[in-house]
Amino acid sequence: MYQLVAKENLAPNFSILKIEAPEVARKVQPGQFAIIRTDEKGERIPLTITDWDINEGTVTVIFLDVGRTTHKLTQLQAGDSLINFVGPLGMPTEINNFGRVVCAGGCYGIGSILPEVRALKEKGNEVIAIIEARHKSLLYWQNRLEQFSDRVIVTTGDGSYGYKGWAPDQIKEMLEGGVKLDRVFAHGCTFMMMLCSEATKPFGVKTIVSLNPIMVDGTGMCGACRVSINGETKFACVDGPNFDGHEVDWDLLMHRQHSYLDEEKESL
């Protein structure tokens, strides 16, 4: 059993959980994820590890309430436990001194991009964080990101706060305006990561995305997480989840993510 040390609501439908998992806290690196299960009948779902504290022996995840399991998670309180917590899984993101980098986050990615932001900054990069949300009420962690980056640009789809528009629009504007970017990182929904990759492609700026296909074991045993990268099949849980966004077959990823749409509706 893995105890929840803290649980908080960040924004409507977004929660943050701090979980006791000292061994994982000691090993995790930016870009890695965990697989959790709430109870004996529960599904195994992957969540990015957004923060950790070796001294406290805790790790943090942020999630959006989208379906059965995330709904169960939303109901939990500090003091409750998860039946399973496996991590750290996947390959860490490559962190180097690239120069000037953009870290774009939308949805749960506003939180899950934090480890990259922090590590890239520590490596001496100029780090620009760009976060997006439909409405200002769905934003969170602007302050935290400001703490670890050179600049945070906020965008909202409806213009209720910051720039009107989305993170990919900002990236595009920067590149078209002649700002030189050495690398872009994107976390969030599949559509947003795809648009970020499309924005950078004409400028040849390498863009690393954190893919989120359906997973079961997370150890390379089942192949549920197959993605197509540059025409080659990869397992996102062991070869990824970070890939070059210019090489991802996005249509395939989106189709596979919706494999169980009918069943999921039935279960709710």
Binding site: K41, E43, V216, C222, G223, E263, S267
Partner: peptide, 22 residues
Amino acid sequence: NEFLTRINLMKAYLFPEYDTPI
């Protein structure tokens, strides 16, 4: 492996009582 794991380990044949679909 995925098909059998969903059934044997995750009990997908008992969906929706169990959460894993197939």
